[in-house]
């Protein structure tokens, strides 16, 4: 990157290090941190949306929809963790290809599962065989996001379901006394008031979500774990201009520090948010705040 980096073997000390840390692969490593943040930024609202949908479904008066909502919460939460991630990435991929196959090639005769193979027609492949590399990467990443959203959505649904029920009964009754319809009561009274009850659960979920991001590696995305393993492993002078021994321990130390800092910052921010949300609420914490003020 720097001008003096033309002949790395001749460099020493800080100059060598500055060149080493700015190679193309290291830039990819740094941008992988962006991938993790991007995943969090997309997954958190998506999971919240799944959760909101799930919680609403679990509360509805229409029985089949309610069973669906409750079943979603129970099944996803009961099945062991990473098994779900490994399962869903393949299952979603095959499910999507199967649907496209049915639509695009209706007169395909052979069975789709032939022994150990899963065969759909060329037009149904996702992404298409001739599409550029970035499409494959975006597709892989979207599958990972969807998997995260489904799994964490079930957890969010459970939290929101509890929070909706925690809104004081008197508030709902007052709304009914004013002649609001159930829909109005839900959107104008329950939803604005439930957040303070949901926040402890949601912030816990956010912490778990942060700590689940390294599993992107298992879903086949080139994330920070992938690059840390790749860059840290021993390099010989034959293949690289920057030979070094096994440095994976230092790379993973960096990741460890990154996650510790990230969770710590989140903790502080969420505590502030909680203090802001409890202001003026009819809860113990809100009452305590009023007295000290």
């Amino acid at each position: 990157m720097f001008e003096y980096c033309v002949d790395p073997p001749s460099l020493e000390g800080l100059a060598w290090l500055s060149c080493y840390l700015t190679t193309g692969k290291h830039m990819a490593f740094y941008s992988a941190f962006g991938t993790v943040l991007l995943l969090l930024a997309i997954t958190a609202p998506a999971a919240l949306a799944f959760g909101f949908g799930g919680a609403m479904a679990a509360r509805t008066r229409i029985a089949p929809l309610r069973w669906l909502g409750k079943g979603y919460i129970a099944v996803v939460r009961g099945v062991p963790d990473i098994a779900f991630f490994l399962f869903f990435v393949i299952a979603l991929d095959q499910g999507l290809e199967y649907l496209r196959h049915k639509v695009k090639c209706p007169d395909w005769q052979e069975p789709i599962r032939q022994g150990s193979d899963f065969i759909v027609c060329q037009a149904a492949k996702i992404p298409l065989g001739n599409s550029p590399q970035w499409v494959h990467e975006v597709y892989g990443f979207s599958l990972a996001v969807l998997t995260f959203a489904i799994v964490f959505g079930a957890f969010a649904a459970n939290v929101l379901y509890g929070a909706m029920r925690a809104v004081p009964r008197g508030q709902i009754e007052t709304a009914e006394a004013y002649g609001m319809t159930p829909r109005q009561t839900f959107w104008r009274i329950t939803v604005p008031q439930m957040w303070v009850f949901a926040l402890p659960g949601l912030s816990n979920l956010w912490m778990v979500l942060i700590k689940a991001t390294p599993l992107l590696f298992l879903l086949g995305v080139e994330d920070i774990v992938y690059w840390a393993r790749d860059l840290g492993s021993a390099k010989t002078p034959r293949f690289t201009e920057y030979p070094h021994g096994d440095w994976r321990i230092y790379y993973f130390l960096v990741l460890l520090v990154f996650y510790l800092a990230f969770t710590r910052v989140s903790e502080v921010v969420l505590d502030r948010l909680m203090a802001r949300l409890t202001r003026g609420q009819a809860t113990t914490a809100g009452e305590a705040q009023r007295k000290t003020a």
């Binding site: 942060i210 700590k211 689940a212 991001t213 390294p214 599993l215 590696f217 774990v225 840390a228 393993r229 840290g232 096994d246 994976r248 321990i249 993973f252 130390l253 990741l255 460890l256 996650y259 510790l260 969770t263 710590r264």
Partner: peptide
């Protein structure tokens, strides 16, 4: 407690493995 609760177990496994290797 902060060290082990604040970081992902997955990263702890990797770190531990490479630590023991060296």
């Amino acid at each position: 407690i902060f060290l082990f609760r604040g970081s992902p177990l997955f990263i702890q496994f990797f770190f531990g493995y490479f630590l023991f290797l060296s």
